[in-house]
Design a protein around this nucleic acid. Structure first.
Lengths: 337, 337
DNA sequence: TAAATTTGCGCAACCGTTTGTCCAACTATT
DNA sequence: AATAGTTGGACAAACGGTTGCGCAAATTTA
């Protein structure tokens, strides 16, 4: 078989018009039962498969979703993409992939290429330094809907799905309080990050719930590097009040902090207890996993974002019904604790 | 702008034929410089972008590569896909994604959908229980080239890129021997897996190189579950010869084994030393990382596989010049060891 | 200056499918 | 039996771009 059979082929063999064959294959009521059967039988026999590229062209639709995100190999994103792919497949959409490597230029280029490939819609998690959103604004002109997830732009009138760190943080700090910890340190991220602010807010609210005083000196900002974490630990361990528990910005930070604590001769879960935020799918594989982790549900985020995009595409959702979904993070106990 | 400008638009505005515009945009020499300039200027002005779906249809080519693999969220695959995506983008190809979740039925379905989407070629890493290759044989009829990577089928006349665990294992065992270890345990995978056999072969050859005797009872097969690993550890630690080092099947197994050893009161890197195979990008974040890891270069595998596929597509490589690339694994020391 | 080339562009077909419209042949109504 | 209504299918255009061929005008060659 040099080239696959076409509708015209079938039409010729049965002395029918191409249009008739097309309708017969779609069970159009205007086509008689007899011819319908004949057509479908021959189609099966020839293993006819519609040429999707022709259909895409004709329908101006590709049943393809573009995904733009910083880095595939980060656990968070690969989980998210997994959710996206599953949701898309359920509706027979395919998924076109592009990673920005956290570079705005690459991000713009990918968006451009995807636009030319005529993806029906886009799912985007921003490169960390993207501040100019022209390449996304441009998509409006082409009526290509975009749903952002996790890393969302500071921009009005957009659809997005993101997680709120506050709720999980409240739970985390509350857990520690409940277990008797009174002096709780927090290794937070850069001050300007929304995610850091949410963690701080969560910490404060948890204290407030127990009518305890929030001590800002226990909450230190770090830069998420190993050195930054060690420095923060040093600061916390030197605090005039004796810290017995630490909320770490994420599992990477947590591990660095644990290591430092071990070096200082502290016993984990006895002298000092850690709670973290799950970036990794394998905290269960760590030698000293945190007592509990705040889960951000990347798979779910991807899935919800995709569902919204699909509803936008099917018309179930009007383009200006802006969906802004915030998924609450939640504390998850380490197995066996 | 309801719909993007087309070639016909430009033609009409300039009183030219569509064919002339098309050629002008492609810098066809038969078109005069003056008209060429005029066309290109107007095109720029209107922000003309060729409709790729039309081109795909016309050229019977989509500049799209399909990727089928078991699980995106596994570190190995997300690194591989990263390599694939980078290589593809370099040649202006896009990447269409599908995960089988290690289910053969899903794998077949994905291949079918990708065929209908007219991907130009496929990159595949098999679901672990796929034994029937009909869905791949079928692709030959449609002249859709396939390059397998990592998990390759047992099938003649295919292109593939895979890694050989033997070389890295030789290096791993040799390192331990050189450091004075004489009784080295191995927690291997299921006996029937090629990857397990390669590890065994590597172990044997390393011993042979030092004219030492290989003791099969030190090499135990496990099923890669946590329980299996604990059982294997139990077996090894009860060995009549005192084991001072262990080669673990992968980082997951390694962590479970470390945990068991700690429970038994052993001191890591003193009483017992571990060497592993890197599945995780973060052994540096483990509290007790292995002394060294055998690297399998997933990014490189993905990249090489993609390059081969692209050469196949560009005709640089004939379809029957079967490429069977084996990338040697290599021992990498943990930082600071 | 006539013939031969070259230059510059238009015409038309084509890729495979869908869909609006038209038409012939039946069938039913009175 | 003449008219109206229904049924089943054909025709053709359209989606946007590419490409082989033809043809006139401009240029070169003899």
């Amino acid at each position: 078989m040099p080239n696959p059979p076409t509708i015209k082929e079938i039409a010729k063999r049965l002395n029918l018009a191409a249009s008739t064959v097309s309708r017969a294959l779609h069970n159009h009521p205007r086509i008689g039962l007899r011819t319908r059967m004949k057509v479908q039988e021959l189609a099966r026999e020839l293993q006819y498969e519609p040429n999707q590229t022709a259909i895409f062209f004709q329908q101006k639709k590709t049943f393809t979703l573009g995904i733009v995100l910083p880095e595939l190999s980060e656990a968070f994103f690969s989980a998210a993409i997994s959710g996206i792919e599953d949701a898309a497949n359920k509706s027979n959409y395919m998924v076109l992939l592009g990673q920005s490597h956290d570079d705005t230029i690459r991000e713009q280029k990918i968006v451009e290429i995807m636009k030319n490939h005529r993806v029906d819609g886009l799912l985007v998690s921003l490169a960390k330094n993207t501040v100019d959103y022209a390449h996304f604004e441009m998509l409006r002109k082409y009526n290509i809907p975009v749903v952002f997830f996790d890393r969302i732009p500071n921009m009005p009138n957009i659809h997005y799905v993101a997680s709120n760190m506050e709720s999980g943080t409240i739970q985390a700090v509350s857990l520690l309080l409940q277990r008797g910890h009174r002096v709780i340190g927090m290794i937070n991220g850069p001050e300007k990050m929304i995610a850091s602010q949410q963690r701080t807010a969560g910490y404060q609210k948890a204290m407030q719930l127990q009518r305890l005083k929030y001590d800002a000196s226990l909450n230190v900002n770090a830069d998420l590097t190993k050195e930054g974490t060690r420095h923060a630990m040093q600061q916390l361990l030197a605090h005039k009040r004796k810290i017995t528990a630490i909320v770490a910005f994420n599992d990477y930070v947590s591990q660095d902090a644990v290591q430092y604590a071990l070096e200082q001769g502290l016993e984990i879960n006895k002298d000092i207890t850690f709670v973290s935020y799950a970036n990794l799918p394998l905290s269960s594989y760590m030698a000293f996993p945190p007592l509990a982790s705040v889960e951000q549900y990347p798979y779910l985020q991807g899935q919800r974002a995709t569902e919204i995009l699909l509803e936008l595409l099917s018309g179930k959702l009007a383009p200006d019904q802006y969906q802004q979904i915030v998924i609450d993070s939640r504390l998850v106990m380490a197995p066996g604790r």
